[in-house]
Write a protein that binds this DNA or RNA. Structure first.
Lengths: 124, 124
DNA sequence: TCATAGTGATTCGAAAATCGAAGCAGGAGG
DNA sequence: CCTCCTGCTTCGATTTTCGAATCACTATGA
């Protein structure tokens, strides 16, 4: 992980140019950060209780540990995560983000209804 | 055009196994779809008015046209987008998704405040 | 001390996703 | 015919992600 003036290599944060937006608008940094694979899923899995590294990996159906490590680093740098004795835990800011994302759950159920009655596969 | 013998799910949809979740839970399909690069950004750029292909590409600071094409196909398959004379337009479901994501804007501004002196501040 | 098992985390070659610039096909106007 | 716009594809290069093995550390127990 190098660093230069390019946004590409750094962890997205508000006020700084990110992928797809040189403006530094906070929401663009958020979209860059959240648009990386597994990022939202990790936050989602942490919404209720702190979780260890390997447990987190298991819950995400064996996502690559290298990617998990990278995501944890990014989310920590963004001050959304911390690590303590019980595992990784959302910060206040992280909890707020998950709350901001929570309407997604209700929306996705509506999506499921309108996309057609569950064609194979359980729901829950 | 894509997916022929893709080892993975094609376009995520609720009720079908997706990356990281074999359960078919709607929210997992949503997280898979939205966790692909540029997906949320595209939705974000379409939240107000229909936009053409090249204009969309310009707004996303010259994202790759091949990826834009792929995303449009995915979002269309997910029934979140349609194309008409004015360009790409969110469906009702797509609008609802953008609304579900809208708390992200307010959150990101708070994130900006807590991460350091606010530099940007615009929304969209 | 040695063995076993748990943890968070790294390594590295392979595979997949994304980039980016060029180009295609079609329509409108000069 | 040419030019300029459009949505969209192609394909080699680059970046990201995968995945299994592995490391370093801690704890337990014989």
């Amino acid at each position: 992980m190098e660093e230069a003036s390019t946004p590409r290599t750094g962890v997205p944060r508000p006020g700084v140019p990110v992928r797809g937006s040189a403006s530094g608008r906070p929401v663009m940094a958020a979209l860059d950060l959240l648009g990386r694979r597994w990022t939202m899923r990790i936050l989602w899995e942490l919404r209720q209780a702190p979780t260890g590294f390997r447990e987190l990996q298991r819950r995400c159906e064996r996502m690559s540990s290298s990617v998990l490590s990278t995501r944890i680093e990014e989310l920590s740098a963004a001050r959304l995560l911390t690590l303590d004795d019980d595992g990784y835990r959302l910060t206040r800011l992280g909890q707020d983000l998950v709350e901001a994302l929570s309407p997604l759950d209700a929306w996705s159920r509506r999506w499921a209804e309108e996309t057609g009655p569950a064609t194979g596969g359980g729901s829950g």
